[in-house]
Nucleic acid binder design. Structure first.
Length: 842
RNA sequence: GCCCGGGUGGUGGAAUGGUAUACACGCAAGACUUAAAAUCUUGUGGUCUUACGACCUUGAGGGUUCGAGUCCCUCCCCGGGCACCA
């Protein structure tokens, strides 16, 4: 097929949906690609094809399916690629856009090409900036100086979500902490809702779980530890610190708390300073800790004791030492922890290293272990009997982090952990507290290729958002765009850009020069698609009401905690602004698997990257699409193998195409047995169910089995001999049409062509998905499996409705059954599964 | 370390607790051909057996059940995610 033919067929599909008039809207969305690198990847095509098959299916089911595509071309990915190739990002964008759209035209998807968008288009990023301003106005965007993630290679800060195992998500450089003033979005305000709503949405379980873990809710208590130091109280006239608050999820282990640890950046340190006798040592440690990367911090536990001050354990009034250590994070909880080495792995390591006391406060309950644990105070043996070795293992080789029964805990000894948590918290006057791991979203980037943050700094009026009517704040046309690593965006070097007027007072002012994170671009694009032509607002209220939330969203699982969390946050903010009446952007989300090659992820360095172009040229889009879907379960992905493609080529081109066109061309020679076939209903049943569950591989297998008549059922088409003559010239033409509809989501071009040959003027995608006739898939005869003691000994063809009594009679007459049961009929009993099997138990 | 997936023929993979290995690739034999390719037909988990058939087999080991790839427990291996979150 030539390119012209593709286009001719594609034009028949009428992929443009009537946005305003659609009566059964169905929004079928796929994650838009980063158009960096050399072009469309076979991985992209895999995801898009699966999504498109679902979309085409829904369309055949009678829905008005909206299936848009666009490019996520702003941001570091694209910019780095441009820099590497020494081409201006804007020029590169033009090139990649052309290339991507050309390729996307070739893969046979039913895109609505009238609704494309690119995130670097100022008509788009105008509204990205508008969103920033709304966040600012609602107090959800704020600027704060703090230790942020800095990638020295990308020369920019990164969000927590973009740091993977201490390395930059993009370039794998070690990320360091840097004290910088940055813009943040207050996503933490939504932590509770982001977590709670997960129960309400139909998403892949593993994606929901990843989000749940990322949000990281933990319920515990805040407890106060009194600080003891006479000098402090005298010297600090104005600021007397008499307690430190810690957050813990294990108040039940409080009796085992043997020291207190503050983070090396702790806000408490300044206040405690005067009481610390070894200040120079402490100061030195703080300096060193600051210079460390996150990765270095996790390597080994370090810390230093704050000499001269002590804390009082509130539950037993014992004096305990205070340490600072970089294993305690300032950004979580209160930045101070009560250390219980017996029951916390990290505290245990630390205590072992610095020779601090380890006092068990909880022992496991149950089990058959027998050992009495000595009470620290009295020396009496208390608690349950445990096997010594077992307990040593639990208590001495490592911390016991599980729950159990309290020991060494005064009046609380013997109490179970769950109860003790409440009681001890109450006893020491602590308060219940919920903490989340989720941090605010660091949104500023010291780069060029992104939407400038629409903020103006005025000496008189302070931080002022750009007036909405002045949007977009366009990126200047400049060749001076390379990042310089100075903590400032290249835009800061552009005088004309920086200098501006204050929107409030009209005086001299300066623009913010950072651009926003590319994940903000993609956090709302699906709102824009149906409204891409709207010049007056980001999205139209009525249209949005009709089309959103998105009905089906398909994409990679790698975005579980990045993109998918941000979209949910932004959608919730829109909801709270009263713009929409839903909180969740995607009703249904499914993560697809990964296509690998030779057992490994495709990568240029391994030289195992599959370029879809070659295969499309060689086999055509239908074969490649269908093959990709046949490799394995869509949710799981699979291994791409060249040898596998021919199987699909044989099926589509040699069997379906040749046979069907032969029948159509010799229609008059065939006896029309329309309506007599039952095989088609079996196919309808299986293929519909499989597509709905995204089990495309088995859907294709069913299409093959039924088309080839391998099911043992009467062959609808007769047998076609190798020379192209038919053994049996009968054809169920209605079933044949239905078959083409069932196959069309997978092989749209081929089915369109054959559909036309059948005499249809309109596209196959204007047809309706065939209705299943349940009565046609009911078997009258079945092969009853006969087992003796669970082993298959025979199968007999019988009536489906056969009774146990009759089945039993037939069974014992079978030669191969007789020899096992003969003479033992007395002790025989049978298990009967109607229409399936009879198991004779002796 | 913790949390998810997964482990089935030579290969990719199928199997609501009910005939394990569908479908496809590969391989073998045959048909067509001067020949090859293409195409078509048949066969194809292992061991034993001329055959009928028997026994074994879903990472390992236990258990529940008339019956387990599927459910439960213990362990091993592979892939992915999180990573000092107290």
């Amino acid at each position: 097929m030539k390119k012209d033919d593709f286009e001719k067929i594609e034009s028949k599909w009428q992929n443009q949906v009537d946005i305003k008039g659609a009566s059964k809207p169905f929004y079928n969305l796929m994650m838009f690609p980063y158009p960096s690198a050399e072009g469309l990847h076979v991985g992209n095509m895999y995801a898009f094809t699966g999504s498109d098959i679902y979309g085409r299916y829904m369309r055949l089911k009678g829905y008005d399916v909206f299936e848009p595509i666009g490019l996520d071309g702003f941001g570091i990915h694209s910019e780095n690629f441009a820099i590497k190739n020494k081409i201006h990002p804007a020029k590169m964008a033009k090139k990649t856009q052309k290339r991507f759209y050309e390729q996307l035209h070739m893969i046979g998807n039913a895109y609505d090409w009238s609704k494309t968008l690119e995130t670097y288009d100022s008509d788009y990023y105008k509204w990205t900036q508008w969103i920033f301003i709304q966040m600012f106005k609602r107090g959800l965007a704020y600027k704060k100086k703090s230790a942020v993630n800095w990638c020295s290679s990308c020369k920019t800060v990164l969000s927590d979500e973009q740091v993977e195992a201490g390395k930059c998500e993009r370039c794998k450089t070690d990320v360091v902490k840097k004290e910088m003033s940055q813009w943040f979005f207050k996503i933490t305000k939504y932590a509770g809702r982001l977590l709670k709503n997960l129960d309400k949405i139909d998403w892949s379980e593993k994606t929901k779980l990843a989000q749940k873990n990322w949000i990281g809710k933990s319920e515990g208590a805040e407890l106060e530890f009194e600080i003891k130091n006479s000098k402090l109280q005298i010297d600090n006239k104005f600021q007397i610190l008499n307690s430190v608050t810690v957050f813990t999820t294990r108040p039940d282990t409080l009796f085992g708390c043997t020291y207190l640890v503050l983070s090396s950046e702790s806000k408490y340190i300044d206040i405690l300073k005067n009481g610390i006798e070894n200040w120079s040592e402490v100061e030195d440690y703080i300096k060193k800790a600051k210079a460390k990367s996150d990765l270095e911090r996790t390597n080994e536990k370090t810390g230093v004791e704050l000499k001269g001050i002590k804390a009082i354990n509130p539950v037993n009034k014992k004096e305990i030492p205070i340490w600072i250590a970089d294993y305690v994070l300032e950004g979580y909880g209160t930045g101070a922890v009560m250390a219980v080495p017996a029951h916390d792995k990290r505290d245990w390591e630390f205590a072992r290293k610095f020779d601090l006391k380890i006092i068990p406060a909880v022992i496991p309950t149950g089990g058959s272990m027998t050992f009495k644990y000595p009470d620290v105070e009295s020396g009496d043996e208390i608690g349950q009997r445990f096997d010594k070795e077992e307990l040593d293992k639990i208590m001495q080789e490592r911390a016991y982090v599980g729950e159990g029964k309290l020991v060494n805990s005064g009046e609380f000894s013997g109490m179970k952990s769950a109860e003790a948590k409440k009681e001890i918290t109450k006893f020491v006057g602590g308060k219940l507290k919920v903490n989340y791991k989720l941090r605010d979203w660091c949104i500023s980037r010291q780069r060029f290729w992104g939407p400038p943050i629409p903020i103006i700094y005025c000496e008189k009026c302070g931080t002022v958002p750009v007036d909405e009517k002045d949007l977009p704040v366009k990126l200047p046309k400049t060749d001076d765009y390379l990042p310089d690593g100075t903590e400032r965006s290249p835009l800061a070097r552009d005088e004309n850009f920086v200098k501006t007027k204050c929107p409030k007072c009209g005086g001299e002012a300066k623009r913010e020069t950072d651009v926003s994170d590319t994940f903000l671009d993609s956090a709302w694009y699906f709102f824009r698609y149906p409204c891409v032509d709207d010049k007056n607002e980001a999205f139209d209220k009525e249209i949005t009401k009709k089309w959103l939330p998105v009905d089906m969203y398909i994409g990679g699982h790698e975005h579980a905690v990045l993109h998918l969390l941000y979209t949910r946050f932004v959608t919730m903010v829109f909801h709270d602004m009263g713009l929409i009446d839903f909180e969740e952007p995607f009703k249904k989300f499914r993560a697809h698997g990964l296509i690998i090659k030779d057992g490994a992820k495709m990568s240029k360095s391994k030289g195992n990257v599959i370029n879809p172009d070659e295969y499309i040229e060689k086999y055509g889009p239908d074969v490649l699409r269908t093959y990709l879907m046949f490799i394995g379960p869509f949710k799981q992905g699979g291994d791409f193998r060249d040898e596998g493609v021919v199987g699909i080529e044989r099926f589509l081109m040699t069997r379906v195409k040749k046979v069907v066109s032969k029948i159509i061309n010799n229609k008059d020679d065939f006896e029309d047995i329309s309506g007599q076939s039952t095989w088609i209903h079996r196919t309808i049943n299986n293929v519909s169910k499989d597509i709905e569950n995204l089990k495309f591989n088995t859907a294709i297998a069913h299409l093959m089995v039924q088309f080839d008549g391998k099911d043992g059922k009467p062959d609808w088409r007769g047998k076609m001999e190798f020379d192209g003559t038919f053994e049996d010239k009968k054809c169920d033409f209605i079933a044949l049409e239905k078959f083409l509809i069932l196959l069309s989501p997978f092989a749209p071009y081929l089915c369109e062509e054959l559909w036309e040959m059948l005499g249809h003027k309109e596209s196959v995608f204007r047809a309706r998905w065939p209705e299943l006739d349940e009565s046609k898939i009911k078997d009258e005869k079945i092969n009853l499996v006969i087992q003796v003691n669970g082993k298959v000994r025979a199968t007999v063809e019988v009536d489906v409705e056969i009774s146990e009594e009759e089945a039993r009679k037939i069974a014992i007459e079978q030669e191969n059954v007789k020899k096992y049961v003969e003479g033992k009929e007395e002790n025989m009993r049978t298990i009967f599964v109607k229409g399936k099997l009879l198991n004779i138990v002796i």
